[in-house]
């Protein structure tokens, strides 16, 4: 019986215990107040039933009591708020050195692209103990990336990137649900997260299921040439467009005086809708690539532009082939 009636999902991420810890506290607080109210009602209802207590004693109210049951719950709430927010902050801030997986959600499947060019459908392979950052976008309706065993969830939106991250702590296979209703086969949009030993993961990675044609950033670099981006975005100061080397993650000054951080969404918007945020000192001459690059190609381009950040002038050569040679840009 109990085998068929589990009360908790598995705990397979660094975060799971933290969420469960807060959950236990909330259960304790709730149980306390629920029992308090139930017990009081039951006790009063029996003790002051009309047959033994025919005449009610009129009591108007009590300011100390009102204050007590306003302020005590308020205090408890503030503690819960602080704790819940701390957990949320961890969820919202992916570690810097996390391995990145790009996700395209569409009705009704999950497509994964790994940094070194592997592709996966409805199955996400990750090594245990490694931070994994998901960079996600949808091709149609809103979906939601939900792995109960990791206690994480993030909506996957069309038209922009959303991110979430996790560090799996336990080898195994876990449910991946789409938790935002997305149409006919919403309930069939279930995938698996397969957490593997690092060695198994390496073997799987090099075993090279089909489709691996070079790293994601290298694919992006190819596209960068094909689409003619390199003619304007040169790695010196002569280009008609801004130099992209070292751009990612840095603040950018716009022509209307605002400053934005060049994150994935900024790069994405600048490709699809170049006029929206124009870098100070440049003219709005870039054509839009809306409708000309698929979601996958877009992710490759973004991965490429991000990889340019790792090749700072002082030549901190990144990890081998994924580090582009800036001279190629010219």
């Amino acid at each position: 019986m109990w085998k068929n009636l589990p009360l908790f999902p598995e705990r397979a991420s660094a975060l799971a215990w933290q969420v469960d810890g807060l959950y236990f506290l909330l259960i304790a607080v709730s149980a306390f107040f629920t029992l308090l109210i139930f017990a009081a009602i039951f006790y009063f209802a029996v003790k002051y039933r009309r047959s033994v207590h025919p005449h009610a004693v009129q009591i108007e109210g009590s300011l100390p009591l009102e204050l007590a049951w306003t302020l005590i719950p308020l205090g408890i709430c503030m503690i819960l708020f602080a704790w819940g927010s701390l957990i949320y902050f961890q969820e919202a801030r992916p570690p810097k050195d996390a391995m990145e997986v790009y996700v395209v959600a569409k009705q009704w499947m999950w497509k994964f692209e790994y940094e070194d060019g592997q592709r996966d459908l409805n199955q996400l392979h990750v090594p245990v103990g490694r931070d994994v950052k998901m960079i996600m976008s949808s091709q149609d309706a809103i979906h939601s990336f939900f792995v109960p065993a990791f206690r994480i969830k993030a909506d996957v939106l069309p038209g922009r990137f959303t991110t979430t991250w996790f560090r799996p702590t336990k080898v195994g296979t876990y449910h991946l649900f789409c938790s935002q209703y997305c149409g006919t086969n919403h309930s069939a949009m279930i995938g698996q997260v397969i957490v593997m030993d690092p060695t198994d993961y390496q073997a799987w990675m090099s075993g090279g299921a089909g489709g691996s044609t070079g790293t994601l950033a290298a694919n992006g670099q190819q596209l960068f040439q094909q689409l003619g981006c390199a003619t304007c975005h040169r790695s010196d100061t002569q280009g008609r467009g801004p130099n992209l080397v070292g751009l990612s993650g840095k603040p950018v000054l716009l022509d209307d005086g605002r400053t934005v951080i060049a994150d994935e969404n900024y790069i994405r918007e600048s490709i699809l809708n170049p006029g929206a945020k124009i870098v100070s000192g440049f003219k709005p001459i870039m054509p839009t690539f809306q409708g000309q690059v698929s979601e996958e190609n877009l992710m490759a381009l973004v991965a490429y532009v991000k990889s340019l950040a790792q090749t700072q002038p002082k030549g901190e050569a990144g990890d081998g082939s994924s580090a582009p040679n800036t001279s190629k840009l010219q």
Partner: peptide
């Protein structure tokens, strides 16, 4: 001054 952002 061509339209910078016709979509929006």
């Amino acid at each position: 001054h061509p339209a910078t952002d016709p979509q929006h």
